[in-house]
């Protein structure tokens, strides 16, 4: 970048893919986002489709992968996990659709993240190049529509995904609680903590930090009003959400990494690649 790209006279300056007068390493961050999100998408898609090893019952443990929770039906041919809300896999399921319980539910948290204001800005940059970086030219010039028209106008449904995501928080918290009870000999359950328990406990905490810092939630708890100081509880709630919201990006990445890691951990334990260690 010794010689900056200059397109003056004006107003066509940024035009031209990756054209910029910036001499710094502006591309590092969008590149990291591309790699990070890309890796997660590849892994989670694979993990969602395989339909096995989502529950670890080794040594009495009870770890359920968050990709598969809530578990509506156990996958066909898999030993019952005890988590399935409606029992065995339905027989009417069309054969041409992969039979994985993750597919039934993963659209909800996936949609929440996809429509999240932080991720939107991040993937528009890294995946769409709109723009690739600040003051850096993008590939599209004529047909930019932003979020004004279909399909991206649907991003405005974010708050509905939020409602679902809050439900998921309870379910995942319950899973973490379940992971504290180990089945002993004779089927008796006893309290215990394994590495997997810790992994499953951290998961809803990070997800909570992310979900409860959501921009839509911030709007709903108080942001929609101009004055909230006369309502102490509301003011407090708004301040709390605002506080989490300031770190929304960090919560988003931490929770994304951890939810993937949790799945991986459960998967590795379930398939016997590693052994969970019981601490207590």
């Amino acid at each position: 970048m010794a010689q900056p790209d200059v397109h003056l006279p004006q107003r066509r300056a940024g035009v031209g893919f990756l054209k910029t007068a910036r001499g710094d390493t502006w591309y590092i961050q969008p590149l990291l986002v591309l790699l990070g999100l890309g890796a997660f998408i590849v892994y989670s898609t694979w993990a969602a489709f395989v339909g096995v090893d989502y529950h670890c019952g080794v040594n009495g443990a009870n770890y359920l992968s968050p990709f598969y929770s809530p578990l509506l039906f156990d996958a066909p041919g898999v030993e019952p996990s005890g988590h399935a809300w409606f029992g065995a896999w339905p027989s009417w399921w069309p054969a041409f659709i992969p039979a994985s319980p993750a597919l039934l539910i993963l659209w909800a948290p996936g949609g929440f993240r996809f429509t999240c204001y932080y991720y939107r800005g991040a993937y528009y940059k890294s995946f769409w190049g709109a723009p690739p970086g600040c003051a850096v030219g993008g590939p599209h010039t004529k047909r930019y529509r932003g979020e004004r028209r279909l399909p991206l106008i649907l991003q405005n449904a974010h708050r509905y995904f939020l409602y679902l995501a809050i439900g998921f928080l309870f379910i995942l918290a319950y899973d973490a609680f379940s992971a504290m009870w180990f089945v002993g000999e004779g089927g008796a359950k006893s309290f215990g903590i394994g590495i997997g328990t810790l992994v499953l406990v951290v998961n809803p905490i990070l997800l909570g930090g992310y979900t409860l810092g959501c921009h839509s939630l911030r709007h709903l708890v108080g942001g929609k009003k101009d004055c909230i100081s006369d309502n102490g509880a509301q003011k407090k709630a708004y301040d709390c959400v605002s506080c989490l919201n300031r770190g929304h990006m960090r919560w988003a990445w931490a929770s994304l990494f951890w939810v993937g890691f949790t799945d991986l951990y459960v998967r590795l334990c379930a398939s016997g690649v590693i052994n969970d260690v019981r601490i207590f």
């Binding site: 939107r120 528009y124 940059k125 723009p131 932003g146 979020e147 004004r148 028209r149």
Partner: peptide, 14 residues
Amino acid sequence: NIGYCNITKCCTKV
């Protein structure tokens, strides 16, 4: 046309 904004936050950064 606030819908054109795709929240890439460059404005905040500068």
